[in-house]
Amino acid sequence: MTEAEWQVVRASLPVPAWLEGRGGRPEGYCHRVMLDAVRYVVDNGVKWANLPKDFPPYRRVHAFARRWQATGLLAELHDRLRDRVRVKEGRSPDPTAAIVDSQSVRAAANVPCSTSGWDGGKKVGGRKRHLAVDCLGLVLVVLVTAASVQDRDAAVPLLERLRKLYFSIRLVWADGGYAGRLVDWAAGKLGLTVEIVKRSDTSGFVVLPRRWVVERTLSWLMRSRRLVRDYETLPAMHEAMVLWSMTMLMAAVWPDAAGTLSSHVSRPHRPEGAEHVRPELCRPPPGRQPLHPRTHSLHPRRSRLPPQLHRDLLRPQPTRGFRPGEHRQDLLVLRREHLHPDAPDMMRHDRARHRGPHRPVRPR
């Protein structure tokens, strides 16, 4: 995350008990490093074991994410960021209306059959995530069930959780899948008015009032590769991944006071005949430092290799009869030769001691 995003997240982070003198074991890693590691997994969709070596060990990172999900620290961080974004947009922190909808995603092979199913309408086998968002599209409640669960059946625990967390909500918009006895049950049991937004009779694509907000939120979640397919064994971890994705979005929106939520997450408009450029890289928002065009960071990566060696490393190496992987060692020698004068001798000594003498490939 950038320095501006970290200042936003840092102000909303829950304070550990050991920092306030209330006991507990001090943590061994910085919160910023751990948050960057979890965000890397959510954004790129890699396995926990495939985290780059620049981050802490993946078992520590996974335990950190699991602990924050189980203790409610992630939900607290998400709610604080959402309240700040709502205040920035000129709204009250307590929402009074919500929009609900669901989205079916395919499940990976590690997802157990007990928590997955088949969605006959969408022809998707996996899980279904149910969202309740506010009028800005920010997530209020998320619930993950099997794809075979109907929307009106999953809406019962979803609305119960919504009523328990937000007493100020009085109106809920939904599509035709939530019509029926759910409307009467929500009015009599929870005191919520469920208004069904029906599809128009016109052919073609039509933007439906209020329903487009939650559809836009579902498209925001698909930007995180971890959420394109369900890889989580537990449904609770999938719900946590949704919250992590939204924290990334809200932390990126908040530092720029000149923009709004829609201007950051929507695709920029390009007039007809204009050249296709990336305005977020060419023209930085006012009040922020220009981003580096290659690393997309406020602190460009400083390499200790000269540009000529960079080009040599990126150039394809010919096969000179070496064993598989031998050219990789040559590149490592090239890199270490620049960093340490005695690196080639050290590498030759290690190769002769551990891997034996060089043997050329026998021609066939």
Rank of each mutant, 00 (worst) to 15 (best):
L162Y: 04
E337W: 12
R294K: 13
V124I: 15
M237W: 01
A155F: 03
R127N: 04
G191A: 08
V41I: 15
T260Q: 00
E27P: 06
L138R: 00
M250H: 02
D345T: 11
K189M: 06
A258V: 07
G45W: 13
K198T: 15
V139N: 03
M346H: 11
P293N: 15
C135Q: 11
S104E: 11
H358P: 12
L208R: 09
A108V: 01
R225W: 10
G321W: 15
M241Y: 10
A147F: 09
R10Q: 12
V111D: 02
S102I: 14
P26N: 05
P209S: 10
V242W: 01
H299E: 09
M346W: 14
S224P: 02
R294W: 15
P14V: 08
Y178S: 02
A98I: 10
A4W: 09
A132R: 06
R320K: 05
I169N: 00
S114Q: 14
V105A: 11
L305K: 01
A179S: 10
A107S: 15
V253Q: 06
P316S: 11
L13V: 02
L171T: 08
L218Y: 13
G120T: 02
T295P: 00
T71H: 07
T96W: 05
R335N: 06
L182Y: 07
H349N: 05
V33K: 11
L234N: 04
V139Q: 09
V124K: 09
F205T: 08
L249D: 03
D345K: 14
R127C: 06
L261V: 09
V41Y: 06
A174W: 02
V38T: 04
L190H: 04
Y29E: 05
V149N: 11
A251W: 01
R80Q: 08
S219K: 08
H349K: 11
E89Y: 04
G191K: 07
L291P: 03
L221R: 01
C282E: 15
V41G: 00
T96C: 04
R229T: 15
R84S: 01
M248P: 00
P324Q: 14
R161Q: 14
V144S: 03
W244A: 00
R311Q: 12
A174L: 01
G117I: 05
R211H: 07
P16W: 07
R270F: 06
Y58C: 05
R294G: 02
